[in-house]
Design a protein around this nucleic acid. Structure first.
Lengths: 212, 212
DNA sequence: GTCTCATTCAAACGTTTGTTTATGAACCTC
DNA sequence: GAGGTTCATAAACAAACGTTTGAATGAGAC
């Protein structure tokens, strides 16, 4: 038997699928592509995951679950220190995405794309994973920016999410457009830029007037 | 003959394709879907556009060309008034997308999705439409924020683009997550929120320190 | 009237797709 | 070691895909 523990078929399928889905998209990746890369049989997808959609869901959940748990863990640390700082909240939300991106850039590219997915089922499944995140981060934001209407907070988090997704999914577009000037590099600097931009954007005056 | 001038087959194909591509995505939309909706023959796509890819390119170019011309026109107006204001530059870049969204929400949803497209050919074709935009807006930004390194300007425009795309493509996700609190409505208010957020984000202190 | 050109049309092409089936090997339980 | 469960495998399924073909149609030009 090998010293390196042999990976199970489901894991091999998930790895292959994650990679291919990220590179080519869900529709452009056939189950034959996945099983070929995983060195598994075509029917094994249906045996372990029921269908192609089941495989997609599993790919998403495997990474999204720890990611969102880490977000909540960090938010807890922030909230425990008294009235939460806006920047610390945004950092708790954004920094874990950078960690995931570092360990596995494929998944973050994939996740960013799902939010603009036309497939309603898939989008709903994805959003359902954020129920607790929404509640907890909203509460923290209300405490950090008490003079802003909740509606405004949602809009600004919407912009934050847009900037975040674009950062991890389209950063090669940035490299191309900037003529190679901007490279995402190790992610740390990109994260700091992202957090700074979002924090400052979040502090925009309310109602177009200067903040009171 | 009809009073309303009969539209040509290519136009009918473009309309149908734009709608369906936006609703279901490129891969999930078959040429049979398109021709059925356009009440045209299946082969007409290849006759007029050469291939499915040709049709996709035509759909994109038809809207993107006027959109980017309008951006440049507005930027000209801003630059002619002396040293350009940051907010005016961002408005010149962002406001036309709202106009397009109002006339044709389908296309903006589609455009936002292309930036996270896995298909390199398609992405390259899309980005190539922005060559002049990049040059002109970069020059304006350099004048408006002279103490920022060009690299920083590119990064911040990257975040702006992310927030913008997310606004027009995923605003129903916002509505769902916010529990119906946030509706995009007529677009005017969303645009103002977006411009305010981006302007403020763009003014984030440089290098993590307070701006000089 | 006839020739010419652009366009439309129905039908078929060969692939590829997700999914299902039937068989067999490997393994654990008692 | 018999019986049963779990997983792997090859083969087949019907459906849908982008694309091509060759004939039919229509309107102007001469």
């Amino acid at each position: 038997m090998n010293l390196a523990r042999a990976r199970s078929t489901p894991d091999l399928l998930l790895d292959a699928a994650e990679r291919l889905f990220a590179e080519r998209g869900f529709d452009a990746t056939s189950l034959r592509d996945v099983t070929r890369r995983a060195k598994a049989n075509l029917a094994s997808v249906h045996y372990h995951f029921g269908s192609k959609k089941g495989l997609i869901h599993a790919v998403i959940q495997r990474r999204l679950d720890p990611l969102n748990r880490e977000r909540l863990r960090r938010l807890d640390l922030v909230a425990r220190r008294g009235r939460p700082e806006l920047q610390a909240i945004l950092d708790a939300f954004l920094a874990p995405t950078m960690s995931v991106w570092q360990e596995n850039p494929h998944f973050m590219r994939l996740a960013g794309r799902i939010l603009s997915e036309p497939d309603r089922d898939l989008l709903d499944f994805f959003l359902a994973q954020f129920d607790e995140i929404v509640v907890r981060f909203r509460a923290a934001l209300v405490r950090a920016v008490p003079d802003a209407p909740v509606e405004e907070l949602f809009w600004r988090m919407h912009f934050v999410i847009g900037a975040m997704c674009h950062t991890w999914t389209a950063s090669d577009g940035l490299e191309k457009i900037s003529g190679g000037r901007c490279r995402i590099g190790d992610g740390e600097k990109a994260l700091r830029r992202l957090v700074d931009f979002c924090t400052s954007g979040f502090r925009a005056p309310l109602n177009g007037k200067e903040g009171r």
